[in-house]
Amino acid sequence: MAYDYEKSIRPGKLPHIWCPGCGHGIAMKGLIRAMDTCGLDKNNTAIVSGIGCASRLPGYMDYCTLHTAHGRAAAFATGVKMAKPEMNVIVMGGDGDGTAIGGNHFIHACRRNIDMTYVIFNNFIYGMTGGQFSPCTPTGDKASTTPYGNPDPIFDISKLAIGAGATFVARTTAFHATQIDKLIAEGIKHKGMSVIEVLDDCPTTYGRRNKFRSVVDMMKRLKEIAVPVAAASKMTAEQLEGKVLTGVLYKEDKPEYCEQYAKVIAKAQGRAV
């Protein structure tokens, strides 16, 4: 029997705003399956986003949903989680939202190791505003504001998350659709800050400018660059040139922020910690 996505979607809120061929729909289906697999109570789960194409997702989802300001999702979500630690908090958004204007909030949420699951839909571009380069647009590529090719080096979001202190970091792509839900589900179950980066595609504002003839070509590209971490260990540096590692990249058990703060409360109230 086909999987029932509709039970997670608000009646009457589709169609979504995304263009034909956009990878966000694939990523959203992965998120839906993951949240379902984990049995998250809709009333007790918040989905928090920023601004951008990806950040429109919460409006479609039948949970407690918070569409915040550009880049601020992690900071809003921190307030939700701190005030009500019993809630499950999913943060999501795009690469520009999360790592440019929201970069400070992102790294500090990682540093605190607060129990949230941050899913970043990385399509290498600012799609909603028409295709300006983001911190993840590959160097040399064309965007509406890099007409001569992008001079900027990129952020590796997963490395950034690991460096900043997130305790579960994973990456996959929209091509590897069946891996998306598994990694997100693992992130949800992980106690602490988990970051799942989903590489996907924007045919409208990125693909067209960068000689991708079709969405299929973009998907093929995602397939080609992805190397599972286990396979990568047997490959040379030369073979790994231009590739991205996929799968669980980092996992560690460390004290979680709300649990640490519960100890602060106990101390303040003179109770044993």
């Binding site: 928090v48 918070l66 915040t68 300001a69 601020r72 900071a75 809003f76 979500a77 921190t78 307030g79 939700v80 989680k81 701190m82 005030a83 009500k84 809630m87 400070n104 909030h105 790294i107 500090h108 703060y261 409360i265 109230q269």
Partner: peptide, 24 residues
């Protein structure tokens, strides 16, 4: 039993306050 958090910047502080208020 309340919560105090020092955020990473002023904008984040305001964001956290709004998020917390939404939980009641």
């Amino acid at each position: 039993g309340g919560k105090f958090i020092q955020m990473e910047d002023e904008i984040a502080a305001m964001a956290s306050v709004i998020g917390a208020s939404l939980t009641g």
